[in-house]
Design a protein around this nucleic acid. Structure first.
Lengths: 224, 224
DNA sequence: ATTATCTATAGATCTATAGATAATGC
DNA sequence: ATTATCTATAGATCTATAGATAATGC
C-alpha cells in the first residue's frame, strides 16, 4: 500500500523536516490505519490505536499529520495510488490478445476483487473528509474512469470498436468502473451466487450488448 | 418518511407500552434523525441533537430506542419502506404503455433521483449498524432488486422479452438497481454532464444492448 | 543547536441512565 | 397506580498539545 509517491504525501503538512522520514513514517501510519479502518471504520478507530499499530507514540503521530482526517486522506490517497497502478498494469496485460475490451474489463474487475475492502472503505468513509480533501479524492476517482475512456478511444482508433459519441464512451467508462465496485459493495449477495469469472463474463456481455441486444453472439446463447 | 408500518417498528424494543404512541414518537425521531444524518453523518450527530430536533428530551429518546444504533436502523428501515413504495408505484405507472422495461427503468431511476440523499445515507452508514441489523438492511436492499426480477419474469411471460437464464435475469435486476444508485453516488460527476433523462436513456440503451450490440436500433444511432 | 520522539494530560465531548415529576385512566 | 416524560449527571472516551527527553549532525 502506498509504496509510490502520491499526491497526499506532498499536500498534507508535517512538522518533521526530513522528507525521507516523512515518507517512511507515513507509510507505517497509513498501513496501520488502513487495517483499522477496514476493521472498525474511521470513527470507531482512535488516534491512539493508529499510533500504537504504527509503532509510534500518539505525540509523534501528530508531528506527521494535523488531524485524524489527515490520516483518512492519506489512506484514501494511498488506495487510489494502488488502484491506479493496478488498473494501469491490468490494461497493459489486457493489451495483448484480441477481444481487448473484454480482457480489459476482466483484468480490471480482478483488481477490484483483490482490493475489495479498500474500495469499500473509500465508498464509506469519503464523506468524513473535509471538503477540500473530499474533492481531491473524487478527482482521483475520476482518474481511474479516464483510464478506461482513453482505452476505449484506442480501441475505436484501431477499429476494434465502432465510433461512439463522446458521452456514450464516457458513460460506458463509468459503468465499467462501477461494475467493478459493485462486485465489492454487493459482494454479500453476488459472491455466493456467481464466481468471480462468471460475474465478469456476464457483466462483459451486458456492456457488449450481447444479452438483450438484437444480434446475440453464440458465446452467450441462453438456455431456457 | 416512514409513514407506513415497517419491520423496524416491530423489532426494535421500546420501554413505552402504547403502540400508537411508539409509532408517533418514532416518526418524529426518524424524521429528525434522517435530516441530521444526511447533513452531518451518523457519527457526528449526537443523541441530544436528535432528541432536540425531534422535540423530545434525551431521556425520552431512550424510552423509544435502546441505543443510537437503534435510531440508525429505524432510519434505514424507513428509507427502504419509502423506496419500496416508490418503486412499486413506479412500476405500476410503467405497466401501461409498451416498451415496458424501458419505462420501468425510467420510473425507477426517477425515484432514485428523488431519494438521492437517502440512498447515499444507507450506502455510507450501513456499516455502523450492529451485525443483526445490517443483515436486515441488506435483506431489504435485495427486496427492491427482487421487484425488478419478478417484473422481468412478467415481461418474459408476456413475450416482451426473450427467455433468459435465471442468473442472467438476476444480474440484470441488480444492474438496474445499481444504475439507479450510481446516479446518486456519482452525482458529483454525472449531474453536471448528463440530464436525468439523458442518463436514463443512455443507461437503458446499455441494458437493452443497443449500444455495442451488433443489432443497433435507429433510436440510438451514433453520430461521429 | 536542531530535529525527532515520548509521556502525561487538559479540555471537550457524548452516550446512556437514575431519579424526580407530570399526565393519564381506573 | 401506571405510564410517559424531563432534568441532571455519572462515567467513559477521545483528540490534540505542552513540555520533557533522546538522537543527530555540525
Amino acid at each position: 500500500m502506498g509504496k509510490n509517491k502520491n499526491e497526499g504525501a506532498r499536500v498534507v503538512p508535517s512538522q518533521v523536516k526530513d522528507p525521507t522520514l516523512i515518507d517512511r513514517r507515513r507509510l507505517q501510519i497509513v498501513d496501520a490505519a488502513v487495517h483499522l479502518f477496514i476493521e472498525k471504520g474511521f470513527h470507531r478507530t482512535t488516534t491512539r490505536e493508529i499510533a500504537r499499530a504504527a509503532g509510534i507514540s500518539i505525540g509523534l503521530l501528530y508531528e506527521y499529520v494535523a488531524s485524524k482526517e489527515d490520516v483518512l486522506y492519506l489512506v484514501c490517497d494511498a488506495i487510489h495510488a494502488e488502484m491506479e497502478r493496478g488498473v494501469t498494469e491490468a490494461l497493459r496485460r489486457a493489451a495483448r490478445g484480441r477481444d481487448k475490451l473484454a480482457a480489459m474489463i476482466r483484468e480490471y474487475i480482478r483488481v477490484c476483487d483483490r482490493m475489495s475492502d479498500h474500495i469499500l472503505l473509500v465508498y464509506q468513509e469519503t464523506r468524513a473528509l473535509p471538503d477540500h480533501w473530499r474533492n481531491r479524492v473524487l478527482e482521483n476517482e475520476v482518474r481511474v474512469t479516464e483510464i478506461f475512456l482513453s482505452a476505449l478511444d484506442d480501441l475505436i482508433a484501431s477499429g476494434q470498436l465502432p465510433r461512439l459519441e463522446r458521452k456514450t464512451k464516457q458513460l460506458i467508462a463509468h459503468d465499467i468502473t462501477v461494475f467493478g465496485h459493485m462486485w465489492t459493495f454487493r459482494r454479500w449477495f453476488l459472491a455466493s451466487r456467481y464466481t468471480l469469472e462468471e460475474y465478469i463474463r456476464r457483466q462483459t456481455d451486458i456492456i457488449l450488448g450481447r444479452v438483450l441486444g438484437e444480434g446475440r453472439s453464440r458465446r452467450t446463447k441462453e438456455k431456457k
